[in-house]
Amino acid sequence: MPKPEILDPQGQAVAGALSRLGIAGVHDVRQGKHFELDVADDLDDDTLHRIAGDLLANPVIEDWVVTRVARDGVSS
């Protein structure tokens, strides 16, 4: 996700579209990215965080979280 202090014009455009649809109550929209990696069960969390921090996200402008989810969609 773009860091809170980074202007997100794409999110603002979505917020504008929502108000044009007549939807009230949405104060702000931030647009980010979501990656799904199919990994071996024994791939450790440190490696996943390195993948996220070194390549998938740019820490200068983006915050990121890693969530490990089982194939059936249950978090572990």
Binding site: P2, I6, L7, P9, Q10, A13, N58, V60, I61
Partner: peptide, 17 residues
Amino acid sequence: LCEAGLLPGALVRNAGL
């Protein structure tokens, strides 16, 4: 060069899109 860490900061989407 910014992504490679040779220069600080980053370049993002134009404010006006």
